[in-house]
């Protein structure tokens, strides 16, 4: 794994929401209030795209996708993409 991906991985796992974590989590749930499953999925898709663009950095986005997909199993040592 490259240093860049290592950095991205540690950024992803670190606590960055501070004292507002509970508030933000509740806001996220609140955004889904009253939506059926498909409307909720559509909201999430828009949100993922917006956040992906906000993050911008390619290594971080790739690492985030990997982390979400791999059920928190760390990537193989030679996986630098």
């Amino acid at each position: 794994m490259t240093g860049q991906a290592n950095d991205a991985q540690s950024v992803l796992g670190a606590c960055r929401l501070g004292d507002n974590a509970d508030d933000l989590y509740e806001t996220l749930l609140g955004a889904h209030a009253g939506l059926d499953a498909s409307a909720s999925a559509a909201l999430n898709a828009r949100l993922v795209l917006i956040l992906m663009n906000a993050v911008g950095d390619e290594a971080t986005v790739r690492a985030a996708i990997r982390a979400a997909r791999a059920d928190r199993v760390p990537p193989a040592p030679d996986d630098d993409r």
Partner: peptide, 17 residues
Amino acid sequence: RLFRDAVLALAEDMPFA
């Protein structure tokens, strides 16, 4: 389809989309 529709929904207001 979900992401395709999300891109189209965002495109009008958000240049990145």
